[in-house]
């Protein structure tokens, strides 16, 4: 769940939020009282002054889908939340504060926009509004994802931090706990969330990535990566752990080119045991090691011919 917090610093007077904001995000996560709210357009009215029928229809559906409402006029009693206009002057106008708009400029604007400026209602051009809407949709998606993500096992996160929490941790069913009788080690434990993939099994068309994973789209055909995509993925630099440097790295390409790694792999004697085992047993493949003629291999297995060759 998202934390519901009250912050004094971020709280603004109601009036200032009504004027055109210079902030790039039109839809703020905090409402006028400073509460963090779930992102949506619920309870907000919009006036659309758009001539292009296709754009008008698209924006109407999108706003309504997100919980907003479309109204026809800029009314003083019930001010709309924002006005969207495709007037050619909007791109310039929306950069300016209402006080800065001169009367000659005001005269060439459509009537609805003039009303909006007079009543201090937000006004946006179609382009910037569409952009804000896209951002909002993206944020809603992330927010939903964050709420449904299963929590990680506590045992592991505790161990990494290695700082004991105060007070015992109580486990609710379903859980698993493994402790050693000697009491030398921390118990292995996990409380399973309803999302954990070990509570239910899925049979037939409901089965997803494994017996314990649900197939969320049972009727959709499986999409597979093309060989080109696979090759591309295979060759991309990856993060990992360098066993030679005993160090984690984010980008393999950078790490292998680094001075530290180059110095470490050039340590004398590091590769001596490997070099004893390299070479070529093929006539048509050269080798930096002396050519080998005999293969050190024990004969095929038979109980009488058993020897520890390694």
């Amino acid at each position: 769940m998202l934390p519901v917090e009250r912050t004094k610093v971020r709280r603004r007077p109601v009036q200032s939020s009504v004027g055109p904001s210079t902030s790039s995000s039109l839809f703020n996560r905090r409402d006028s009282t400073g509460h963090v709210t779930l992102l949506s357009l619920h309870g907000k009215d919009f006036v659309l002054d758009i001539e292009n029928g296709r754009v008008l229809l698209q924006l109407t559906t999108e706003i309504e889908k997100l919980g907003g409402r479309i109204v026809n006029e800029v009314n003083e009693e019930k001010k709309p939340w924002c006005l969207v206009s495709d007037s050619p002057h909007m791109a310039k106008i929306e950069q300016l504060k209402p006080e800065k708009i001169t009367p000659p400029l005001l005269r060439i604007l459509p009537m609805l926009v003039r009303d909006a400026i007079r009543l201090r209602v937000r006004y946006r051009s179609t382009e910037s509004f569409t952009r804000s809407l896209e951002n909002l949709k993206k944020n809603i998606k992330t927010q939903k994802k964050a709420m449904t993500t299963p929590t990680k096992a506590k045992a592991e996160s505790n161990a990494v931090a290695s700082t004991p929490k105060s007070g015992p941790i109580n486990l609710q069913q379903p859980y698993l706990k493994l402790e050693d009788n000697r009491g030398a080690f921390t118990p292995l434990y996990k409380q399973f969330t309803p999302q954990a993939n070990c509570q239910k099994i899925y049979l037939g068309k409901h089965m997803g990535r494994s017996l314990f994973h649900k197939n969320h789209h049972p009727d959709a055909p499986r999409t597979e990566k093309s060989p080109i995509e696979k090759t591309r993925l295979a060759l991309q630099p990856k993060g990992g752990f360098c066993e030679i440097c005993c160090k984690k790295f984010e980008n393999s390409k950078e790490h292998f080119a680094s001075r530290e790694h180059t110095l470490n792999v050039n340590q004398p004697g590091l590769w001596s045991s490997v070099d004893k085992l390299t070479g070529s047993w093929l006539d048509y493949v050269s080798s930096s090691n002396p050519p080998r003629t005999r293969r050190h291999r024990p004969s095929p297995p038979s109980p009488s011919d058993y020897r520890h060759s390694l």
Partner: peptide, 13 residues
């Protein structure tokens, strides 16, 4: 069904 403070401070196996 709980993990006490002493157990939380122990090392991992």
């Amino acid at each position: 069904p709980s993990i006490c403070d002493a157990c939380q401070a122990k090392p991992n196996k």
